[in-house]
Design a protein around this nucleic acid. Structure first.
Lengths: 126, 126
DNA sequence: CTGTTACATTGATAAACGTCAATGAAGAAG
DNA sequence: CTTCTTCATTGACGTTTATCAATGTAACAG
């Protein structure tokens, strides 16, 4: 069982205790990885297909190969994605689920596979 | 049950359908608002206290008043916070819960007030 | 070996961002 | 009125970021 390194509690939930500077920086670092449309798209494609190689991304996203490679690097260094496997010259990436959970957790949410829809209705009903 | 304007489904959950460019930009815009340690801290303080005025932030966060004001503006324009009330020269801000929910939802999480803690450790007291 | 494919890295350039000093705007108190 | 307080805005500065062309690396195929 791996421990969450960064967050012991949600940063942005009601009643949240003051956040140490270090934690704030760590959280911001993660969010920064998702603060670009290209990277959101990349993560989305990977999420939809499970494993994706670089050449499957340049076309749909409409960016050059070096640029895509750069974004993959950023995402990888943020711990959001990782290399799933290499076959020949292909490099396949996949998501790191626990990293996504950390992000959702940081905002005060949780990963709920059952899929509760988020609405503007009072959440208490859920 | 009102539907989310920006996100009809999580962008980063397994099996997610391809994300339109517009949606990717909208999501990235939201994440960008949290992609700075100062703003993470600000949101955290607001979350912990419910309503906070600008002068309560400059000290703990250690930034000048104009800088804090700038970050508050960014957060406000991203729809993450809003002006709760003005009393005299004070301006009190509060979170916009639905915006937080959207963010958590985008990553594939959901806001669960009951609090299923996402951690591999035995959940510490919230 | 030669050539091709997939990906990573480097270098350069333009845009965006964070920060603060200075200034402006609006209310409260005297 | 004047003065003080709180907050927002402007302007300037240095840093970071996104992007691509060019180049490098590695694994195949022949």
């Amino acid at each position: 069982m791996k421990k969450l390194r960064v967050l012991e509690q949600p940063c942005c939930a009601p009643g949240a205790p003051p956040l140490p500077r270090k934690s704030a920086e760590a959280i911001a670092e993660r969010f920064k990885a998702l603060a670009d449309p290209a990277r959101v798209s990349i993560v989305n494609r990977i999420a939809g297909q499970g494993e994706v190689c670089t050449c499957q991304l340049t076309g749909p996203i409409g960016l050059s190969q070096p640029t895509v490679s750069h974004h993959l690097r950023v995402l990888k260094e943020a711990g959001l994605i990782e290399v799933a496997r290499r076959r020949g010259t292909w490099t396949f990436y996949r998501l790191v689920p626990s990293a996504m959970e950390q992000l959702a957790f940081a905002i005060g949410g949780s990963l709920e596979p059952g899929g509760v829809l988020v609405t503007d209705e009072p959440a208490a009903a859920v």
